[in-house]
Design a binder for these strands. Sequence first.
DNA 1: CGCGGATTGTTGTCAATGACAACATTTACA
DNA 2: TGTAAATGTTGTCATTGACAACAATCCGCG
Lengths: 165, 165
Amino acid sequence: MAAKPRPSQRAVPVIGEDSRAGAEAARLDLGILEGHLGYFVRRLQVEIFQQLITALAPFNVRPAQFSVLVLIERNPGQPQAAIARSLNIERAALAKMLHELERRGWIQRLPSVDDGRSHALFLTGAGEDALTRIKALAQDHERRLERRLGARRYRELAALLKDFG
Amino acid sequence: MAAKPRPSQRAVPVIGEDSRAGAEAARLDLGILEGHLGYFVRRLQVEIFQQLITALAPFNVRPAQFSVLVLIERNPGQPQAAIARSLNIERAALAKMLHELERRGWIQRLPSVDDGRSHALFLTGAGEDALTRIKALAQDHERRLERRLGARRYRELAALLKDFG
DNA sequence: CGCGGATTGTTGTCAATGACAACATTTACA
DNA sequence: TGTAAATGTTGTCATTGACAACAATCCGCG
């Protein structure tokens, strides 16, 4: 059986193509993706995280680790399950992460006085020092993001998202 | 050497804790995370993707595959590199994804008439049929998202993000 | 008190993903 | 022409998320 008729490779003649050779590659038509909020949220999130990971690279800290450290600092003595619930991460994933943070000497787990099953989480002195510096790097990153988005868009986005959460 | 003095496990007496047993677990203080736009963008993105993956489960299609199909439909005959650039995914990752889509009989790759290195990408008839149904599922998902966010917040978020992109 | 169910922390596995490097082929340009 | 760049492909590596299973412990109820 013969192959189906080959569709024209010029059916859509590259709308808006820049005829100058060497120009930046033309962006394609996103079609229905333009109507999907998740597409844009995803792109923004990926860009923000890439830059944040770069910003935190001096301490070799991932965004998830950063958020865990912040929650322990602000909520000392809480058990792992409370941290995991508040950050929407699995207990299993948090347990592995905490092993690493403990290995670095940034946190300590003490047996809970209230509940024999749970561990009370605290930052160590070294953890507090490290987190202070890490938070400064994260703040720098946030300022860059604000400049990148424009102060007005940044402010409106933050208001919408916080109001929603 | 003695253990360092154990910090009080009641340093912060669980602000706003609900004294009723069995109530939903109290949310912890997010601290500086409240000032990081990326935290909220991430949470929204994860929620949207989880729901979208569920919505597309009948076709066993992932969001990335969906976006690739849409771009091929709207830009038939384009080479892989153009798709990859437009979606911010690696050529290597796209190549693997296209193998799977080709295996399902949804796309075909024809040798480009212009460039001996590249493949011109097209949907097959089956691919068009599948994508039509997949887009309908994605639209249902988008409507649910609009209800979840509230029509006004949805509209404002979409405007801000599109304007930015 | 004793028991069953729920919770906590842990370990292990599995699949999916992203980031890289390397490569052959082909094109573009100086 | 010859050198650099682009394209598609393969393979590897580390990371991640989602699950299941497990021991220890707590809770509620008879």
